[in-house]
Structure formats: C-alpha cells, structure tokens
Design a protein around this nucleic acid. Sequence first.
DNA 1: TTCGTGATAGAG
DNA 2: TCTATCACGAAG
Length: 195
Amino acid sequence: MSAVADRPFLDRSFFASDPVRCAEALVGCTLVWGACAGIVVETEAYAAEGDAACHTFRRPSARQFVADHPAGAAYVYFNYGMHWLANVLVKGEAEGFVLLRAVQPVAGLAWMRRRRGPRDVAELCSGPGRLARAFGIDGRHHGVDLCAGGRRGFLARVRTPEIVRGPRVGISLAQEKPWRFAVGGNPHVSRPRPG
DNA sequence: TTCGTGATAGAG
DNA sequence: TCTATCACGAAG
C-alpha cells in the first residue's frame, strides 16, 4: 500500500468541472477503493445535457440522481443482467458522468484475483465490468461520496500520461462524440484499443 | 459471432 | 403485463 500512503484524495472541486474535461483529467490519477488501487488508464464522458448515450437522456432515475447528489458521488448501475459499472458524478459548468473503463492495478492484486480468478494482470481491470468486479464495486456503493476521505477516492496524477482520444465504446447513440480517453499504448486499456 | 442475464421505463 | 433496450464479457 505504499503507492497509496499519505496522499489526500482529490477534492470535490476536481469534479466541479464538466464531464469531458474531467474524464480526461482523471486519466493518470489513482483510484483507491479499500484495499485495492489502480491507475486510471481509460475513461469515458457522458453529458447530462445533449448526449443521447447518457442515462439522463432516458432515465428519470438518473436525472434524479444528479439532482440529489454532490459532485464526486459514485453512480453505480447494473447492466446486461450481469455487470456493474462505476461512474463518478460531475457537476460544475456542465453536469454528467465519467465512466471508469480500465485501471492498471497497483494494490490489492490478491483481492482482485480472488474476485476475478487467476488472470494475467492486464486482464484484471481492462474493461468497466471487469474493473468493478475486481474492485468489489456493486450496488451497495451507488451514491457513495468519493470526496469524503476514508476508504474510497482518487489520488492526483504523479505524472502526466500521454492521452489518446477516440469514440466511446459499446453505445448505439451519439457515437460521433470522441469522449473516450486512454493512456496511449497502455496494455491495461480495454478493447478495441483507441488510436 | 453469439448468447447469457436482469433492471428500467414506456407502451398497451 | 409485455417488450425493447442496454456504457459487457466469456466462450466458441
């Protein structure tokens, strides 16, 4: 846990931005979740306004979530009958979410393998469903504050990564928006590789 | 490429 | 009640 020790979490002002900028800024930061931690290597932005792929476009419950929670709250939902997906609420100049798509594991590898099975490190968290599974993220965490200190939050970048940008993955609407961000060439990024 | 699996929301 | 849809992943 030395990679995690004695550094403060990103505070709420980090998420009081807009979802696209925030998604890019989060790449290279470290996600800390209890005993597990990983460097964020891939994100996507979803805008509450004008983005047909965002849950807020169709789901009243998502709009209510935005209204009821502060920036930096976790938005966790169950999809395809089997996968949990983890997002962070952004509320600032614009509102929306940042989907956490992949991290490079740095702590808690034993826990991740216990949940995901004995896999290669590059397979542990290289996708939003995989990441949530490896970190033990599920519906219990829907709405938790990631800017409150304690066990869960983000650490600032130690280095600025080389970020590549491309279209979002796995959506049918608003595919034209290049709102996926990833660390160029990083093996922990999900497929299809951007670039 | 195909299919498992379930929450959500809107229509009937 | 019924149905379409869905920000996925594992196996084949």
